[in-house]
């Protein structure tokens, strides 16, 4: 299975701007620029899209892991934060942080944590990202 997105960039790094379009059409010539990435501006940036990817993928994976244990989550809310730092080698995504708040009836803390750790280790986007992913999790039953 292949998924694709396209990017068009026009102009210089600082003055130029680009658009992002995804195959599904959810992003359609969505604007991004140096300002939307490093300062402020209207538009998206690649880093928040990575965060969205990880958060979305992790939440699905957690639901799956809980399901394997016979647990059915009412909701899983995940905030993913991508940390971009200016290192000697250049701007680098150094760290991803997941904050999970889940409502899972009948789940013990241990079952929930095992499922969350398994989801963090095994979700497709986690496996793609060669970076440190930390996580804090909260469970409502």
């Amino acid at each position: 299975m292949n998924r694709n997105a396209s990017a068009v960039w026009k102009g210089t790094l600082h003055e130029g701007e680009g658009t992002l379009t995804t195959e599904s059409g959810v992003l359609s010539k969505t604007q991004y620029s140096y300002r939307t990435r490093f300062t402020e501006g209207i538009g998206t940036n690649p880093d928040e899209l990575i965060a969205a990817s990880l958060g979305g993928c992790f939440s699905m994976a957690l639901s799956n892991e809980l399901g394997i244990c016979g647990l059915h989550p009412k909701s899983i809310e995940t905030t993913a934060t991508a940390t971009l730092e200016d290192l000697t080698a250049g701007w680098t995504l150094t760290h991803m942080q997941l904050e999970v708040h889940a409502s899972v009836p009948d789940a013990s803390q241990a079952r929930f944590m095992e499922a969350a750790l398994a989801a963090k280790a095994n979700c497709p986007i986690s496996r793609l990202l060669k970076t440190t992913i930390s996580m804090t999790a909260r469970l409502d039953r």
Binding site: Q109, A110, M113, T136, A137, R138, L139
Partner: peptide, 10 residues
């Protein structure tokens, strides 16, 4: 560490 965070939050 994650479990301690979970307990701490709770």
């Amino acid at each position: 560490s994650s479990m301690i965070d979970l307990l701490d939050v709770g």
